[in-house]
Design a protein around this nucleic acid. Structure first.
Lengths: 399, 399
DNA sequence: CGCGATATGTTTCTCGAACGAACAGAGGAT
DNA sequence: ATCCTCTGTTCGTTCGAGAAACATATCGCG
């Protein structure tokens, strides 16, 4: 995950490991397991981590001490031997998430373990500026303040922005649909909310979320493709870690070539995936230009005449997926947004087209799946951005 | 040092860190620095690793004890303070490398530090089978045996194969130009040579080599593209680690779409990069069908009429690079084989075409570079395959 | 119901890795 | 010649993990 510029514990930029770092690594490992895989018995943690049970005892005790985890009575296991207490991630350790979009701003509260505590969507009259987003979001957070004070420990704020984001600087280089360009978002949000703020690209965060809590659980190599009104974004998990790129702009998968005789894309290139596979063109044949993504499945089922356009888009999508398979050799391709609806409309066709184009995948054909998290996607992804800092160094983030 | 029963250091598949692993990690870090960046003073190692100087002293002593490094008198530095001894990687710790190809089998000996000690190319009458490759290679190794016994410690054997390789099983799934299919290569080579053998895809190893010892030094995100008579292969370094894929078949970059109206590729798809950018078509306009890669630069300079075809291929190459930039956001694109010659023939054209197609790259345009290692490429890459095991656990690999 | 087998928590001791402080050595600077 | 600075060396300290012995809770069985 992102390296949060957390000003504490300088860590000396060295690559060597001291003893402190062993402890840190092990605390991080345990807490990460609890967060991603849910509550576990201490005995199971011992096996998973491969450490001595007295060590696990000490590690769990430290996490409990830090209020990051708690233990409950052993569950009825029916097995012989002394029952092992269940260790839970403390779901009241939370991240605030913000997702500014063209028509609304969504604020959420997500706890350790990926628990979605709250999610509030506030529609906007027009496409919001950065300042308007700050105002709306901080208003929503103020409304939650009493609740948060009552029982949560907020670790930080994560923002998912639909556009190119330089996470390190907290600057949105270009978010075409929001009209943001070279906009420092971290500073104003941090000023308004008084908490550490981190930003990242929405598709990247969606990929993280699906890989940890959705269709990509346990998969180490996957390509996530998301189709929205604003185009096609994506993210890639390669060997268990997110593809970032030198400047953090990787995985602009909607801007890869699928048709050299195609039309010019707003990005300047020709025949990009998102000019051919496109919500607008789908809505046109469905006769509903303003249909939301939620209604899309039903709408597709109701308009049989749309089949031809759907199949055309699926065939083009297969071309792109064929490329991604050659490039990444992923275990799974996960389709979100309207691409999920498209896939569901005719899974066999996409399957067949992709198989016909996969020459490396013969041994073990790539899995095609629809994304699972739907509306929770970005909220959970943005929370991961914040919680990753805590997971990385559970004892270091003092409050 | 401790003469523990070096049975294997079970490592228990756990993700937790014990103290042993701290030591292992630090030894690995130091030795890796020496191998990749060359000899260093102890004081410099201390700064780079961020460890205490007494710790570095102990680590270096252990490496010297293991005969993996040696120290020499301090060099004239002209600086104040006590001079620091220079620590060298022991270049007589070596890997044997084997590179079977359609017309020859090359065997090499490479030492720590990336030193190429020997390289012998043995042309073959026909495309070699696995067994013929084993015979030729073990013959060549036997010829070197006396020399090796005299002063080298051979860690293992690394094989670079032009095709899809499952490194884990040591099986070549498909090497079209060699005609190998589902061939277990590790077993016969290991039997003939009596040493541990590892196999990997040649383009992957070339990428490793260029990134460590060639044009990609110090770069963490790069795409390497290699053009040979058999097509275009590639490798990707993302965030400092090689892209592998779920089955190890990633980075088949020659089989990505560049022309939807193109011709059918042997892989079954249409309009692949390697059907358009192609040594055969280049040689056709140069009037030399059998020209080797070494003569290509001179030949291109001598045949001005070839310019049109060169520019066409460069433009197509730019399309593919534009895709790779959108997908990976690399810092650098490195061109090897005939793609290097192509680039050198008209660098400005490729530069301009790529810039016109790079929408994410605006901030910091991607670097375009020709590969540097040339004929040493695969030998050094294959050695890295073997040495990586030693670097990973310097004290664990007993002999 | 009591006993053994089994698995796991708990306590205590030991080992090992890195660190820090104090000292020693080797060069440059004055 | 003397001081300053940097680094190697030695030794005691700290801290994290492991191992062994013991304690505890459950199952299975007679």
């Amino acid at each position: 995950m992102t390296d949060l510029p957390r000003t504490r514990r300088t860590l000396s930029a060295g690559v060597g490991n001291s003893n402190d770092q062993t402890r840190r690594h092990n605390l991080s490992t345990i807490l990460t397991m609890l967060h991603h895989d849910g509550a576990q018995t201490r005995a199971r943690l011992t096996r998973l981590a491969g450490l001595n049970r007295s060590t696990i005892g000490a590690l769990v005790a430290e996490l409990v001490d830090l209020d990051l985890a708690y233990e409950t009575e052993p569950a009825e296991s029916g097995l012989v031997g002394r029952p092992s207490p269940v260790v839970h991630p403390n779901e009241r350790i939370a991240a605030i998430t913000i997702n500014p979009d063209v028509d609304a701003i969504t604020v959420g509260v997500v706890g350790l373990g990926g628990v979605l505590h709250r999610s509030i969507r506030s529609p906007t009259d027009a496409v919001p500026t950065v300042q308007q987003s700050v105002d709306v979001a901080s208003g929503l957070v103020r409304g939650l303040q009493a609740e948060l004070d009552a029982g949560f420990r907020v670790v930080g704020v994560g923002i998912a922005v639909p556009g190119l984001v330089n996470s390190r600087d907290g600057v949105v280089t270009l978010a075409p649909h929001l009209g943001w360009r070279d906009a420092d978002v971290v500073t104003p949000f941090a000023a308004a909310l008084g908490r550490p703020v981190t930003v990242a690209n929405d598709a990247t965060l969606a990929t993280v979320a699906e890989s940890l809590f959705g269709a990509g659980r346990g998969v180490h190599d996957l390509v996530y493709l998301n189709g929205s009104a604003s185009g096609i974004g994506g993210g890639v998990l390669a060997g268990g870690s997110m593809l970032r790129g030198a400047q953090g702009y990787s995985a602009e998968l909607g801007h890869t070539l699928v048709n050299s005789a195609g039309i010019r894309c707003h990005c300047g290139k020709t025949g990009c995936l998102e000019t051919e596979v496109n919500l607008g063109r789908l809505q046109a044949v469905l006769g509903h230009s303003g249909a939301g993504l939620d209604e899309l499945d039903a709408l597709i089922a109701a308009v049989p005449d749309a089949r031809q356009e759907i199949d055309r888009q699926l065939d083009v999508l297969a071309l792109a997926i064929g490329n991604f398979v050659s490039i990444f050799d992923p275990e799974s391709i996960i389709l979100g947004g309207f691409l999920g609806s498209l896939y569901e409309a005719n899974p066999a066709r996409l399957r067949a087209s992709v198989d016909a184009l996969s020459f490396t995948g013969q041994a073990q054909p790539v899995r095609l799946e629809r994304a699972q998290l739907r509306s929770r996607l970005l909220t959970i992804g943005a929370a991961e951005l914040v919680l990753a800092g805590l997971l990385d160094d559970p004892a270091g983030t003092a409050f």
